[in-house]
């Protein structure tokens, strides 16, 4: 690890007041410290925000407002979340390990970086995300776990967060506080596709701090998060789906479908939602929606299995959400 300047702040104003080149906020540290040890992150200044009072979870206009420093555990165990956003609760509980969930903050989870090995190990010469212009190691190398949706020639790195998948399904909006004031950005727009600039991952301006995540009232209180992985715990998704359905008289009135383990960003699928809305809640509808969700997939040799796997994950999650038996 390289030396860095450390400062601790007590409030939001102090946090956003002194941004600078190579600056990082430290919350739970479960990504930042890890990447600093790997020499991937080399911040000059680290601002410790753990004492900033941003951990409250409160009712907000039929929805909920989650302080950015609330831990994953806190959110997973909160009654409002269990009651209104079950897919978020399930996604959180399927994440990482209990120890990591106790440390990691929700704001940090949104900022979590990819697990692509070519990014995480500086011994590899090619990673456009870490070293723009150096090429993509994964494309020509080992990419079994990398993304099939939202990829570009420059980058196929998967977005590893489970929680963010549920958050985009629930239309989460981030509150960002910067030196110039506050603004709100939907999480769907906050995460940027890699395109030609995979090093730019978020719509985040200099000095801005995520202060809250707001979830509007859900379209329905039945939500499902289904995660398929190589082992039962402490493992990222090969494929996952967060789905929320409002079904009236057997007809789907509204649908939210988001995918994990397959996208370069937490992947909301308007194609699947369009295929579901107004249709009967049947296996056939779900299969059509699943195919629509994956229609734009661009798999490579080693991750081609994610296409059929994800179709099955979507179908199963929709069946569970709709209460339809196999």
């Amino acid at each position: 690890m390289r030396p860095f300047a450390y400062r601790r702040v007590e409030d939001v104003a102090g946090a956003v007041g002194q941004p600078g080149e190579g600056h990082r906020f430290l919350a739970g540290g479960t990504t930042l410290i890890d990447l600093m040890r790997l020499d991937v992150e080399r911040p000059a200044v680290v601002t410790d925000i753990t004492r900033v009072p941003l951990a409250e979870i409160t009712e907000h206009e039929g929805g909920v407002r989650i302080g950015a420093l609330a831990s994953m555990t806190q959110v997973a165990e909160h009654g409002l979340i269990a009651e209104r956003y079950p897919a978020l609760r399930e996604a959180l509980l399927a994440s990482a390990s209990q120890q990591l969930r106790n440390m990691a903050s929700m704001g940090g989870n949104v900022m979590q970086r990819t697990r692509c090995p070519y990014f995480r190990d500086v011994a590899f010469p090619s990673c456009n995300k870490r070293d723009p212009g150096s090429g993509c190691g994964a494309r020509a190398g080992h990419h079994r776990k990398q993304a099939i949706l939202g990829t570009s020639g420059a980058c196929i790195a998967e977005h590893a967060s489970d929680a963010s998948v549920a958050l985009v399904a629930y239309d989460a909006v981030l509150t960002l506080q910067g030196p110039g004031g506050e603004r709100e950005v939907p999480l769907r727009e906050f995460n940027l596709l890699p395109g030609d600039t995979p090093q730019v991952e978020h719509d985040l301006r200099e000095g801005e701090l995520i202060t809250a995540l707001t979830l509007p009232a859900p379209i329905a209180r039945s939500g499902v998060y289904l995660k398929i992985r190589d082992r039962q715990s402490y493992e990222f998704a090969l494929s996952s789906a967060a789905v929320v359905l409002r079904v009236e008289g057997g007809i789907i009135g509204a649908a939210r479908v988001a995918l994990g383990g397959v996208g370069t960003v937490p992947w909301r699928s308007p194609e699947a939602e369009a295929a579901l809305t107004g249709q009967p809640a049947t296996l056939e509808t779900f299969q059509t929606a699943a195919r629509a969700a994956l229609a734009g997939a661009e798999p490579l040799e080693e991750n081609a299995f994610k296409v059929p796997l994800t179709e099955r994950v979507i179908v199963r999650a929709l069946m569970q959400a709709a209460g339809v038996d196999a």
Binding site: Y118, S126, G141, H142
Partner: peptide, 9 residues
């Protein structure tokens, strides 16, 4: 093993 560098992934 990465095919291009021979390094462990």
């Amino acid at each position: 093993t990465d095919p291009r560098t021979g390094l462990i992934l």
